[in-house]
C-alpha cells in the first residue's frame, strides 16, 4: 500500500515538474493551474505515504535515510505552497517541484527497512535533532531555488541579453528577499538541530560536545558557516544580491553532502 501511494506521489511530482516547465516556456494559464492541481494530488498521496510509514514503524518519519528523504520532500512541497501563496511567484514551481521529485526518486534506491531504535533516555533529543534539521534543510532548499532564479535573472539583466527567462521571472529584489527570509527562518532551526545533535552525540557516547567525526561533518560545518554569513552578513556588511544567491547555492550542496555522509 505504501509503495503504491509512494509511486503515485512521485509520478505526480514528475508530471507536475513537466507541466511547470511547459508553463515556463509556453505561458498558458491552464497549464499552470493543471500543474498546481497535480502537485496538490501528489502531495495528498505523499501525506498518506508518511502516515502509512509511521503506522508501520511506530515512530515519525525521520529515522532512516529513506524516511528523511520522503519527509524532506513532503515539507518542501508544503513550504512551496505557502511561499507561492504569499509571494505569488509564478515559475517557482519549475525550480522547487523537480527537487521534490528527485528527492523521492533518490529515496526509491534507499533501503525501506524500518529501524527500531533501542529505548533511550536521550530519544527526545534525537527526535528534536532530526525534525529541526529537516525543517532547516527545507528552508535551505527554498533558498537554493530562489538563489538559482536570482543568478539566472541577474545574468540576463547584467549581460543585457534579455531572453525568455527575463520576462518570465520576478524581480531580483523579490528573489533576494525570498532567499533571505527563508534563511532567516531556516538558519536558527538548523542551528538548533545541529546543537541538539551534538548534545545527543555527547550524551549517548559520553564524549565532549565538540568531538564530532570530521570526516562525516565537514560539509555541514562549511554549510553552516555559509548560512551564518548570509544570516548575519546582510545586517552587518550588506551581504546581499549575487553573493547571497551564490552562497545559498553552495550551502545547499554542502547540506546534500551532509545528508549523504551523515544520515
Amino acid at each position: 500500500m505504501t509503495l503504491i501511494t509512494f509511486n503515485i506521489a512521485m509520478i505526480g511530482y514528475l508530471v507536475a515538474s513537466l507541466e511547470y516547465f511547459i508553463y515556463l516556456v509556453y505561458r498558458k494559464q491552464f497549464v499552470s493551474t493543471l500543474a498546481a492541481i497535480t502537485v496538490g494530488v501528489g502531495w495528498l498521496f505523499h501525506t498518506l505515504v508518511i502516515i502509512f510509514r509511521s503506522q508501520e514503524t511506530g515512530h515519525g518519519p525521520y529515522t532512516t535515510s529513506f524516511e528523511v528523504a520522503i519527509f524532506f520532500s513532503w515539507m518542501m512541497v508544503l513550504v512551496y505552497f505557502l511561499v507561492n501563496w504569499k509571494y505569488k511567484i509564478k515559475d517557482l514551481g519549475s525550480f522547487v517541484i523537480p527537487v521534490a521529485f528527485l528527492t523521492l526518486l533518490y529515496a526509491t534506491f534507499l533501503s525501506k527497512e524500518a529501524v527500531v531504535f533501542p529505548e533511550s533516555q536521550f530519544q527526545i533529543l534525537l527526535t528534536l535533532h532530526r525534525t529541526l534539521s529537516i525543517l532547516g534543510s527545507v528552508a535551505f532548499a527554498m533558498a537554493f531555488a530562489a538563489g538559482l532564479m536570482y543568478l539566472i535573472q541577474e545574468k540576463q539583466v547584467k549581460s543585457k541579453k534579455l531572453g525568455i527567462m527575463y520576462f518570465r521571472m520576478p524581480s531580483l529584489e523579490i528573489l533576494d528577499n525570498l532567499n533571505y527570509k527563508v534563511i532567516v527562518v531556516g538558519f536558527p532551526l538548523f542551528t538548533l538541530g545541529f546543537m541538539t545533535g551534538s548534545i545527543w552525540n555527547a550524551q549517548m557516547n559520553q564524549l565532549s560536545l565538540f568531538s564530532w567525526d570530521l570526516v562525516k561533518t565537514w560539509p555541514l560545518v562549511i554549510g553552516w558557516f555559509l548560512y551564518g554569513l548570509i544570516f548575519f552578513g546582510r545586517l552587518l556588511v550588506g551581504l546581499q544580491g549575487k553573493k547571497a544567491a551564490q552562497f545559498s547555492i553552495f550551502g545547499f550542496i554542502t547540506i546534500m553532502l551532509t545528508y549523504l555522509l551523515h544520515v
Binding site: 535573472q153 539583466v157 527575463y166 520576478p170 524581480s171 529584489e173 523579490i174
Partner: peptide, 8 residues
Amino acid sequence: LARKIFDD
C-alpha cells in the same frame, strides 16, 4: 528593467 531589478 527597473521593475525587474526592484520590486516595488
